[in-house]
Design a binder for these strands. Structure first.
Length: 869
DNA sequence: CGGTCGCGCC
């Protein structure tokens, strides 16, 4: 135990001379006590002598009358009589009785009047009278006044100290309670077992492990270590996550353990997430022959639920029935919850149906059970049913139903629950509002989530995390970052692990490198890197910001990598065109016995296709199907088609699509259409385009792609026809835009944009670059231009797509050594790609351009994509 | 007794 060290520590809460043996303490106490008692008795004797000398009938009368009122419990008359009496009429013992009556009646007003009678008449407040005053003030709730009396008079009996310490603790004034305890020690008052339980609760309340340990030492020194209830209080003190092992030590050293000791230890382990240890203590308890009670069984059910030990749960169910606990509501509810958390919904249902009176708790647990098993319909149905049964759902039920709707993307049901919440006025509950926002966020309705957020009277960190995460997940990365900044600016909450895990993907999707680095700093300062969610999203963020080496360095720092860690790194290599490295990493992952899933295969196959590794791609596609038994999804097929089409295997890709066991969607045919463009196969493109247009008639991107194929083949008539076709449908092209982060600010450009304050400089710069390119024999690749003739003219005149503008701004406004990082929402255009190569050579700057598909790293006139895009 | 928020592919 730590006590030995701590008691000799120089920074000791308890003055070291207080560490005396029990014997010493007691004998010292006795000496002091006698001195004080002698003094008090001297005073009392003299008082009584005086009273006796002036003895008359009226005094006896007043005392007798007063005692009668007191015995009858008539406080009003007692105080009235006291008011009319003088000092000589009243015996101090009678005063004690009046004070007791005030204490019992919890009447502070009368109590104060008695107190002022005592003080006004100059009664000597001895230990007895003082104790009663303390009791009166304690019971009447004036703890300050009660505490003050301890300064004025020596109270001998531990009971009064204990009672006040308890009340101070209950009122939250733990420090006050501990101050009283210190005073009790310095007065040398003899303590009893209740003293220790009161004060240990206060150290608990202060979360002062140090104080608790000191108290522990004091308990041992003063010989109370063997007292069961004192040991139980110490157990209760130590039963927190950080100190369970100290609790275990106390428990193991106890000579006699009662059912409370066992229950405390079991529940202590289980409620701190150490279910297995708690359950093994329970098994020991059974062996020791101590009889279990309701608290034991209820805790153990929780432990079985946590560790999914349904067999043990069933056995404990029997033990509980044998102990005749089967009728208790808490037993049934916890049992039902245990079965449902262990995935045995049928048993849960049986318990539920056979329960005598099903409470709102029973219904909530049952609904949670359905929700966990994905039976959202059943969950929502039960929610409706409980009202019909006359059981009103409460905030717990509503939160559970909402989280069920969120998990299962049930927007309509969720909205109906929202209506119900409004009708039943439950929006005040922070859990309910948070769950509501999460439901809307997961169902993709960020507008509704925002509305709930704006109407919350108070929010907590979870509310902010939910909305920030909702923005992140729903492609509102800018909004996610803004809200995150607002949270910091207003110093509402310090970001926690969840916040960081919500914001990093937003940085990743925007390629907000500087912002991401800032958050990285925050992660290091708060030691969040050990959180794997965070480490993984950090690696992903750096990879998506083009800082692949940094991503790899951090990846190597992750102590225990999980599937996601490997997947983000593989995907990172893939999007930068490092197919071989992605494959090597994938093999390492399998050597580390991490089983790949469908997502990691998507990343790997894309890595193969982005690097033109056809044979490898095929090999892994087959490994996935045959070795890992993963049924390919549309994404996997899209990777293969993309891979074949890019490398010119157009007819092979076509046949592959035709033989797919699942119906291909537009992205599959779209991948082939891209290949047709790269390899200039207009005939196949026309055939493929019709399928694409049929599957996704609203997606303008495909019309643009086809138009480009026609214009590259100089089939202008076909371009015109296609343009007409789009016009008839009233489609608008999804505008291309690019952005670049400069000094923490994101600058966004669309094609032909002149809204940036630096526009003139940008245009001049680009005209200069174009001129140099012409001199060196490059011609503008206008065949990549858009199909809208007007826009085309404008762009040509302005010399620029959005990515050109962003790159130019980057070159013009950042220091020479700095890498230019531009991001585009669509694929980069061919002319821009050529120009970027040229610019990298001309200005000797490294340009990293991330488009919707992959990274292009331009250096000395070359691009890392080597044409695979 | 029962309840809310986080990472990877497309």
């Amino acid at each position: 135990m730590l006590v030995a060290n701590l008691s000799s520590s120089s920074f000791c809460f308890f003055p070291s001379h207080r560490f005396q043996t029990q014997k010493e303490t007691r004998s010292n106490t006795r000496v002091k006590k006698n001195v004080i008692l002698n003094r008090a008795s001297l005073r009392t004797v003299s008082l009584e002598d005086r009273d006796r000398s002036t003895f008359d009938r009226s005094l006896t009368d007043s005392n007798i009358r007063l005692r009668r009122f007191i015995e009858a419990g008539d406080l009003v008359s007692s105080v009235k009589l006291l008011r009319e009496s003088g000092k000589r009429d009243i015996d101090p013992r009678t005063l004690c009785s009046v004070l007791q009556l005030c204490a019992d009646s919890r009447s502070l007003k009368d109590g104060k009047e008695v107190d002022s009678f005592i003080r006004g008449n100059g009664f000597v407040i001895d230990s007895n009278l003082g104790s009663k005053l303390v009791l009166m003030y304690t019971n009447c709730g004036d703890l300050k006044e009660a505490s003050r009396i301890f300064d004025q008079v020596r109270i001998e009996k531990a009971l009064f100290w204990n009672t006040l310490m308890n009340e101070l603790g209950k009122s939250g004034d733990f420090s006050g309670s501990i101050r009283l305890f210190k005073k009790m020690m310095s007065f040398g008052i003899e303590m009893d077992r209740y003293t220790f339980s009161s004060v240990s609760k206060s150290f608990s309340g202060l979360r002062s492990v140090y104080g608790g340990e000191q108290l522990h030492g004091y308990v041992l020194k003063s010989g109370f270590g063997d007292c069961n209830s004192v040991a139980n209080s110490l157990l209760a003190f130590y039963l927190k996550k950080e100190t369970v092992e100290s609790a275990r030590k106390v428990f193991d050293e106890m000579t006699e353990r009662d059912v409370i000791s066992w229950n405390s230890m079991i529940n202590g382990y289980i409620s701190n997430g150490l279910a297995e240890q708690g359950l093994s203590v329970f098994v020991r308890m059974l062996c020791s022959g101590i009889e279990v009670d309701l608290a034991t069984i209820v805790s153990v059910f929780g432990g079985c639920a946590d560790s999914r030990l349904i067999a043990l749960g069933r056995a404990v169910h029997c033990i509980g029935l044998k102990a005749c606990l089967g009728k208790a509501d808490r037993f049934c509810n916890k049992l039902l919850d245990m079965y449902s958390k262990c995935g045995d919904l049928d048993s849960a249902k049986v318990v539920f149906e056979e329960m005598r009176d099903r409470s709102v708790v029973s219904y909530t647990s049952m609904i949670a059970g359905y929700a966990r098993e994905g039976l959202a319909g059943e969950a929502v149905k039960l929610f409706a049913e409980m009202e019909e049964e006359g059981i009103s759902p409460d905030v717990y039920t509503v939160t559970e139903v909402l989280s069920c709707c969120a998990r299962n993307r049930l927007l309509e049901e969720g909205k109906r629950v929202h209506e119900w919440i409004k009708e039943n006025d439950m929006g005040f509950d922070i859990f309910v509002s948070n769950a509501l926002m999460d439901m809307y966020a997961k169902c993709g309705s960020m507008r509704e989530a925002e509305l709930v957020f704006s109407e919350m009277p108070v929010e907590d960190i979870i509310s902010w995390n939910t909305v920030i995460g909702g923005y992140s997940k729903n492609c509102y990365a800018n909004e996610a970052l803004s809200l995150f900044s607002l949270m910091l600016e207003e110093k509402r909450f310090d970001p926690d692990e969840r916040t960081v895990a919500c914001v990093l993907p937003a940085c990743a999707s925007l390629s907000a490198f500087d912002k991401g680095r800032e958050i990285h700093g925050y992660i290091m300062r708060n030691r969040y890197f050990s959180d794997r969610h965070i480490a993984n999203s950090l690696v992903d963020m750096y990879a998506k910001c083009g800082a692949l080496l940094l991503a790899r360095l951090l990846f190597d720092e992750i102590a225990s990598k999980d599937l996601v860690s490997w997947t983000v790194m593989i995907a990172g290599y893939g999007m930068h065109g490092f197919g071989k490295e992605a494959i090597a990493l994938f093999n390492q992952m399998r050597q580390a016995d991490i089983e790949p899933d469908e997502i990691s295969f998507v990343s790997l196959l894309y890595a193969c296709s982005h690097s033109g590794l056809v044979d490898e791609g095929w090999r892994f596609f087959n490994i996935m199907r045959h070795e890992c038994k993963i049924e390919p999804t549309l994404e996997h097929y899209a990777c293969i088609v993309d891979m074949l089409a890019r490398t010119g295997n157009l007819s092979k890709a076509y046949r592959f699509i035709e033989n797919m066991p699942i119906p291909p969607d537009a992205t599959i045919w779209g991948a082939l259409l891209c290949g047709c463009r790269i390899h200039h196969d207009v005939n196949l493109a026309e055939k493929v385009a019709e399928k694409v247009f049929e599957l996704e008639p609203e997606n303008t991107g495909y019309y643009v792609l086809m138009a480009n194929i026609y214009s590259e083949a100089e089939k202008w008539e076909e371009v015109r026809k296609l343009r007409e076709r789009i016009g008839r449908r009233g489609l608008r092209k999804n505008p291309g835009c690019s952005w670049i982060e400069i000094k923490g600010k994101v600058n966004i450009f669309v094609a032909g944009d002149s809204s940036n304050p630096e526009t003139e400089k940008i245009e001049a710069f680009l005209r200069g670059v174009r001129a140099r390119m012409r001199e060196e024999g490059y011609s503008p690749q206008t065949k990549y231009a858009l199909i809208d003739a007007k826009e085309m003219e404008k762009e040509e005149a302005l010399c620029g797509h959005s990515e050109k503008l962003a790159m130019a701004l980057g070159i013009l406004s950042s220091g020479h050594g700095k890498i230019i990082r531009v991001t585009k929402n669509l694929r980069v255009c061919g002319d821009c790609h050529e120009m970027a190569k040229f610019m990298s050579k001309l200005t000797r700057r490294e340009i990293v351009l991330r488009d919707s598909n992959r990274f292009h790293q331009f250096k000395d006139g070359h691009c890392s994509c080597r044409g695979f895009w």
